[in-house]
């Protein structure tokens, strides 16, 4: 409804294709909110991973070739892992801001030439294990499970052998049994057609995950105060909206998977209880390894607020 010919256009880099759920369900709505909040004074133009590969997108935004970054912090964890740690912190967006978690991360990124605009979660819970065979009493004992580095401590603690493998190889590996399972998000597994090759999904689900929207700091400082306010307000609103929105999407994805014949298999009660702690400890371990005191500072802050292990 609000279109302004004289609108200033920001260029945005996204780590996801426009059809991938994490972008599709957040990106366009965020752009719409920015337009609304700025009364049509600001617009954002999408550029995908065909313009800059997903894992190399932080630097071009940092150097100002692009203005806005839509990403997951794991994709630049070699530069800093403080953002990554947010996946170990409870998802309540209001409480995250009140407890100073948001500001802490923002300040950290500003030292690196980036301004944090928003950290929308993709649902109240983030992950589950997708398996070829149902669970028995001994959790993941003897199974080879694909997971990125954040999952490794958890998979080991559950008796499994963590395998590091590119996404492109996972389908074939599950199909042939090279791998016994994979830890994956609650949305997106059906896009990758995991249901064709892994007929079980484990309960309970665990952890949380979200994306981050950031901006080049110089470009941010050059915005008019009203424009800055519009960006931040759009960022705050999208955090509130996306939580409920993704919970609904996850329920739909669940139905899709069941519809494709995927069955539920359960961890023992004892194991189910420790999944959360295993997940968040694993994330903190990784974050503190790369970013040391900066990550530990965030850990203390979140712990004091009772939002993490």
């Amino acid at each position: 409804p609000v279109d302004n010919a004289s609108a200033e256009t920001l260029s945005m880099l996204s780590g996801y294709a426009p059809t991938f759920a994490w972008y599709r369900e957040i990106g366009p709505r965020f752009i719409e909110l920015v337009k609304e909040e700025s009364k049509g004074d600001l617009d954002i133009r999408y550029n995908g991973p065909d313009t800059v590969p997903t894992f190399e997108q932080f630097q071009p935004v940092q150097s100002g070739v692009f203005d806005v970054l839509f990403t997951h912090p794991a994709y630049h964890s070699g530069t800093t892992s403080v953002g990554l740690a947010i996946d170990a912190i409870a998802v309540d967006p209001v409480k995250r801001r009140e407890a100073g978690v948001f500001d802490y991360i923002d300040k950290h990124y500003q030292k690196r030439g980036m301004k944090l605009i928003s950290a929308p979660s993709t649902g109240t819970k983030g992950f589950r294990f997708y398996l070829r065979e149902p669970l028995k009493d001994d959790a993941l004992k003897g199974r080879k499970i694909r997971g990125t580095v954040s999952y490794h401590p958890m998979i080991k603690a559950l008796g499994g052998a963590p395998v590091n493998m590119p996404v492109s190889e996972v389908y074939t590996a599950l199909q042939r049994g090279t791998m016994d399972g994979a830890a994956w998000g609650l949305t997106g597994a059906s896009d990758l057609k995991f249901y064709e090759v892994a007929k079980y999904m484990a309960d309970p689900v665990f952890g949380q995950v979200g994306v981050m929207i950031m901006m080049n700091l110089e470009r941010w400082n050059a915005l008019k105060p009203a424009q800055q306010k519009a960006m931040l307000e759009a960022g705050r609103k999208i955090e509130l909206e996306s939580l409920a929105h993704f919970d609904k999407l996850q329920a739909e994805e669940y139905k899709t998977l069941i519809g494709h014949g995927v069955q539920i298999t359960k961890f023992s009660d004892a194991d189910a209880k420790r999944l959360e702690a295993l997940w968040s400890n694993g994330v903190w371990e990784v974050a503190e390894q790369v970013s040391g005191d900066d990550a530990r500072g965030l850990h203390n802050l979140a712990r004091k607020a009772g939002m993490t292990e």
Binding site: P53, F55, E56, Q59, P60, G64, E169
Partner: peptide, 22 residues
């Protein structure tokens, strides 16, 4: 188009390809 600011993403593109598992 973007001047020398774009050199980073240019070099990263080389890096990305030669270290790609596929």
């Amino acid at each position: 188009t973007v001047g020398s600011r774009g050199f980073g993403m240019f070099t990263n593109s080389l890096y990305e390809t030669i270290t790609s598992e596929s």
